[in-house]
Amino acid sequence: MATLVVHTVSLRTRFVSVDLELMDRAPATVQEARAIASRHLSGDALEANLQFAEDHLGEEERFTFTPTRYRFADLRMRAPRVRGQQISGSWRCTSERLR
């Protein structure tokens, strides 16, 4: 039996960009607004947020998108060291077209 332990010393910085195609646009229902707000809030905070939105923000809209392309890059600095000093940085970028 073996155990593999991985420890990351430095944080990763990643960039993500997504191209989207608009598929639908419609007024949002009260149930949709509640479902989205309840991802981050609960109890009295959820009810207060929904009431504030209704009183001050007007009608909400629902947009439906389809992703057409993802672009992502790992922006960690991975540079060779010469005599203990970092001499340059690098990053990888990839793109994936959907469909």
Rank of each mutant, 00 (worst) to 15 (best):
T68Q: 10
S10N: 12
F63Y: 10
L41W: 00
H40M: 02
R76F: 06
I87R: 15
A33E: 10
A26P: 04
Q51N: 13
T3P: 01
A2E: 12
Y70F: 06
H40V: 06
G43L: 02
A45G: 06
L4C: 04
L22S: 08
A48P: 00
E96I: 05
Q51E: 15
R39D: 08
E54R: 15
R83A: 09
T13E: 13
G89I: 01
A33G: 07
R71D: 00
T29M: 00
A45M: 06
V18W: 09
A26H: 09
D44L: 12
R97A: 15
E54P: 09
L4W: 06
T3I: 11
A37D: 02
L46D: 01
P27S: 12
R92N: 13
Q31N: 14
R83T: 03
A48T: 05
P80G: 00
S95A: 12
P27N: 07
R76P: 01
A35K: 01
E60G: 05
F52A: 14
R71V: 00
R25S: 10
V30W: 11
Q86L: 07
E21C: 10
V6W: 10
M1P: 08
L20W: 13
G58M: 05
V5Q: 08
R99G: 14
I87A: 14
E61M: 08
R81W: 11
R12P: 04
L20A: 08
R62Y: 07
L20D: 09
E47T: 13
R25F: 06
F72K: 02
D55N: 00
D44N: 09
L4S: 03
S17L: 11
T3Y: 11
R78M: 14
V30Q: 07
R81V: 13
L20R: 12
V18M: 12
P27Q: 09
E47C: 08
Y70A: 04
T66G: 07
R12W: 08
A48G: 05
D44Y: 01
D24I: 04
T29F: 00
A45Y: 01
L4P: 02
C93Q: 07
I36V: 14
L41V: 02
S88G: 07
G58N: 04
R78V: 13
H7V: 11
E96T: 07
E59G: 08
H56W: 14
F72V: 03
R81K: 11
A73D: 01
Q51T: 12
P80I: 00
T64A: 04
T68I: 07
A33R: 07
G58C: 06
R14G: 13
G84D: 00
W91E: 08
F72E: 00
R12K: 10
L75N: 01
R76W: 05
I87E: 15
V82P: 04
A79P: 09
G84K: 02
H7M: 14
Q31H: 12
F52W: 09
D24M: 00
G58Y: 07
R81L: 12
A28R: 11
V30I: 10
L11Y: 14
E21N: 08
V30S: 09
T64Y: 09
A35S: 03
R62S: 05
S88K: 04
V9H: 14
R76K: 10
S17P: 03
A79S: 15
F52G: 09
T13G: 11
T64Q: 06
I36M: 14
A53H: 15
